[in-house]
């Protein structure tokens, strides 16, 4: 490995699952998501010079991946053109909405959904930055949905430690999320 390159093994271990989760928050196809993550790593390695530690490596990789996801959508969009005729009844004189086109989801709710997805992804990112024990507590409580007694037993903490850790973790998460918003 040359001096200018980075530890690719470490990069894969630390970033691949996060990037895959990010891709899956936007795509439904796991194989496609894996391919795009692989492409992202390859692009990153070949243009490492443009990184220059200007930002966090994860932020940088995520922006490359995001670009690839958008490219995928754009290419998919040009292959599929839906004529407007499929939206309205073409039989009679009055062109009314076809049954399956009138009850569609509102744009507002989709935007809301996308914003929530991005915020959730950012929160996931923030949780990974917490001290290991706090991260363990948060994961046991929210992801594994363990009861407090079990969390205390597993993590070898007292019940009062539990809420103190949750309190502190939330302060950090709140800080991390609001800073991410400004970035």
């Amino acid at each position: 490995m040359s001096d200018t390159s980075i530890d690719t093994g470490k990069l894969v271990e630390e970033q691949s699952d996060y990037l895959l989760s990010f891709a899956m928050s936007k795509l439904q196809d796991l194989e496609l998501a894996k391919d795009l993550v692989q492409d992202t790593f390859v692009s990153a390695i070949t243009k490492l010079d443009s990184f220059e530690n200007r930002s966090n490596i994860r932020t940088w990789l995520t922006s490359i991946l995001n670009r690839k996801i958008i490219d995928h959508w754009r290419k998919a969009e040009t292959r599929y053109t839906d004529p407007v005729s499929s939206y309205f009844d073409q039989e009679g004189k009055a062109k009314h909405w076809l049954m399956d086109k009138k009850n569609s989801t509102s744009v507002e709710s989709v935007v809301d959904q996308i914003t929530k997805e991005e915020a959730t992804m950012e929160l996931y990112n923030c949780i990974e930055k917490l001290p290991p024990k706090w991260r363990g507590v948060i994961a046991s409580k929210y992801l594994d949905e363990k009861v407090s007694d079990d969390i205390c037993k597993d993590m070898e903490i007292t019940p009062s430690n539990l809420w103190v850790i949750i309190h502190r973790a939330k302060l950090l998460l709140r800080d991390c999320l609001t800073k991410a918003e400004l970035r």
Partner: peptide, 12 residues
């Protein structure tokens, strides 16, 4: 949220 719980499910 379900959305959050799904995040940890994907890995290589």
């Amino acid at each position: 949220s379900k959305r959050f719980k799904h995040l940890g499910e994907y890995s290589f």
